[in-house]
């Protein structure tokens, strides 16, 4: 009952706060950020793909142990983290011990870089998972400058692996938010989502060379559970 009450109050408060803020739809310049990666195999690339991992629970540690087992047997060169890197809410500072507890200690032994995107829990404002504060993404971008294993040079970026593969990563957490964004620019219909419509969904060199092009996003429009089927939480 208490969590429901708290969520209800947060929704009301969030609605009041954002109702008073100006709508901002001016165009936002989205820089073409290229991630720097160490030299990776260009003939056979093996990639771990995980999401919603940052709970700190036995489940996270058990899956991480399974990853180590599989990578020791089959090999892994690169990782992808699809958001909700922290529960219930993301760190507010790049020096937070959460980065060590939920990422470096858990996945450091794998020894591969991870292409990361933030999730709605990482961008929490009033309630864990509300996705309303995109400053959480900026904290994770700042952490990428402290730990080379955490690759997130911007809220959107591209990463090239020779002519074999190219990944474009986009912070779509604001589209999975339960509350309107704290900053008008991050709201659906705001400058961040609008400016990224086409400009961020692209592969360059790999596409031209016939390589594989991969999109890395928080949420999907294809699925069999309530969230991606519904457009209320993934607009």
């Amino acid at each position: 009952m208490l969590p429901r009450l708290r969520m209800g109050l947060a929704l009301v408060l969030g609605g009041l706060l954002v109702a008073c803020a100006p709508r901002l739809t001016d165009n936002m310049n989205v820089p073409d950020v290229q991630a720097g990666l160490p030299t990776l195999p260009a003939d056979r690339l093996r990639v771990l793909v995980m999401g919603d991992q940052g709970t700190g629970t036995d489940v996270q540690w058990r899956v991480a142990a399974a990853m180590r087992e599989v990578c020791a047997r089959e090999g892994c060169d690169l990782g992808v983290g699809l958001g909700d890197n922290f529960y219930p809410s993301g760190p507010k500072d790049a020096s937070s011990p959460l980065f060590r507890e939920r990422f470096a200690d858990v996945y450091g032994p794998l020894g591969v870089p991870f292409l990361m995107v933030p999730g709605n829990h990482d961008e929490s404002w009033l309630v864990g998972g509300d996705g309303a504060d995109a400053r959480g993404a900026e904290v994770q971008v700042a952490y990428s400058r402290l730990n080379a294993q955490w690759v997130m040079p911007g809220r959107s970026y591209r990463a090239l692996v020779g002519a074999l593969a190219e990944f474009f990563a986009v912070d779509t957490a604001p589209l999975a938010a339960y509350l309107p964004g704290l900053r008008p620019a991050d709201r659906p219909g705001g400058a961040w989502p609008l400016s990224g419509r086409g400009s961020r969904a692209r592969c360059g060199a790999a596409g031209r060379a016939g390589g594989w092009c991969w999109g890395i996003t928080r949420c999907s429009v294809t699925g069999n559970t309530g969230m991606p089927v519904s457009t209320t939480t993934c607009r």
Binding site: V49, A201, W212, W214, I216, T217, C219, S220, P228
Partner: peptide
């Protein structure tokens, strides 16, 4: 926008 560009879209949330 990604249609015709990406071979595969990777996502979480679910």
């Amino acid at each position: 926008a990604a249609c015709g560009v990406a071979d595969v879209i990777l996502s979480g949330h679910v």
